[in-house]
Amino acid sequence: MKLKLTPTQNLCVGYLESGFKLIQLGEQFYFIKGERRQKVLPKTLDALVNRGALAHTEQGDYTLSDEFVEHRKRMREMNEPKQTRH
């Protein structure tokens, strides 16, 4: 898995992490949450699959891969400030 993502790829991951659903309308893909809709290019989704961040299911859905979710969790834990007692 290539862990370095472009800003656009990071934005797409952020949409999925914050509860947006990815849907396809015709040839176009959108992140949807309530009334909000954000267009995403198919080549961006393909790049995320190739980098291991997204998994493409047999039903045609895109989801964050388990491996990527674990990676993000580890990165967050590493970046949390250490709490010390005084």
Rank of each mutant, 00 (worst) to 15 (best):
L11S: 07
L11E: 12
C12F: 10
C12A: 15
V13G: 09
G14M: 07
G14Q: 13
G14L: 08
Y15S: 03
Y15E: 04
S18I: 00
G19Y: 10
F20R: 03
F20S: 06
K21D: 14
K21E: 14
K21C: 02
L22R: 10
L22H: 05
I23Y: 04
L25Q: 14
L25S: 14
Q28I: 07
F29R: 02
F29H: 12
F29N: 05
F29I: 03
F29C: 01
Y30K: 04
F31V: 03
F31D: 11
K33H: 12
K33W: 03
G34D: 10
G34A: 10
E35R: 13
R36L: 13
R36F: 06
R37K: 15
Q38L: 11
K39C: 03
K39M: 04
L41I: 07
P42W: 05
P42D: 06
L45S: 05
D46K: 13
A47N: 07
L48R: 09
V49C: 07
V49G: 01
G52N: 08
A53S: 08
L54Y: 12
L54T: 09
L54M: 04
H56W: 10
E58A: 09
Q59N: 13
Q59W: 08
G60I: 01
G60N: 07
G60M: 08
D61H: 13
Y62D: 02
L64P: 04
L64K: 02
S65E: 06
S65R: 05
S65K: 10
D66N: 09
E67F: 05
F68K: 04
V69D: 02
E70M: 06
E70C: 03
R72D: 00
R74E: 15
M75C: 07
R76A: 15
R76D: 11
R76E: 14
